[in-house]
């Protein structure tokens, strides 16, 4: 049999022409399996579990901003029917109370937002309401940060700055045990 000389075999390189094809194959695999879905959402800190409900009836009525959502996704804010789009402005006015009105919160640290829903409430509506309430606080923090430090309130701020703002306007949403009128 005709054998190649040693030198000839040494000079034989691996053919790298198919490298691109292999890489393409891998690339397509990753392209297909990739989900570049960013995980985003509203972060909430739940209260620790306790058997007895916190009783908000003991609190001064002017400091409680009660929001009720019923099974038909209707909103009752402080005893009167309301729309979701008005919620943010009303909550902001309640927390800051710029005109020192008798029926709104004494000061932001005393303000409590009480949220109660039904077991038949649509989750989408619930989240929308929660989002509006959170937006109210975020805007107030932004305003406060602008006054104090000249910047918006962001997560990158130093902890001391954040604490300064959040101690002035603490985020208090108390969620009551839901009613169960409209459970499907």
């Amino acid at each position: 049999m005709a054998r190649k000389s040693a030198r000839e075999r040494m000079s034989n390189e691996i053919n790298a022409g198919s490298m691109a094809d292999i890489a393409f194959l891998l690339l397509i695999f990753f392209l297909v399996t990739t989900t570049i879905v960013e995980d985003k959402g509203i972060t909430v800190k739940l209260p620790p579990w306790s058997e007895d409900e916190p009783d908000i009836t003991k609190l001064n009525k002017r400091n409680v901003f009660s929001v009720l959502v019923n099974a038909d996704n209707q909103l009752l804010v402080r005893g009167e029917l309301a729309q979701i789009k008005d919620l943010k402005e009303r909550a902001k006015e309640f927390i800051v109370n710029p005109q020192n009105r008798e029926d709104l919160a004494e000061k932001p640290t005393k303000a409590i937002i009480s949220l109660k829903n039904d077991r038949g409430t649509k989750y989408g509506t619930y989240l929308e309401v929660y989002n509006e309430l959170k937006a109210a606080y975020e805007e107030l923090w932004d305003e406060s940060a602008q006054r104090k430090f000249g910047t918006d309130y962001t997560d990158d701020m130093s902890i001391a700055k954040k604490r300064a703002i959040r101690s002035e306007i603490p985020f208090v949403i108390s969620e009551a045990e839901p009613t169960s009128f409209g459970e499907e």
């Binding site: 972060t43 909430v44 739940l46 579990w49 099974a71 077991r119 619930y126 409209g182 459970e183």
Partner: peptide, 21 residues
């Protein structure tokens, strides 16, 4: 509807898993 979500939330609270997104 919120019924299931509420049950899950209650269970999370009981398990002391309070950070929720």
């Amino acid at each position: 509807t919120m019924g299931v979500v509420q049950d899950v939330k209650t269970e999370l609270r009981k398990s002391n898993q309070l950070k929720v997104n």
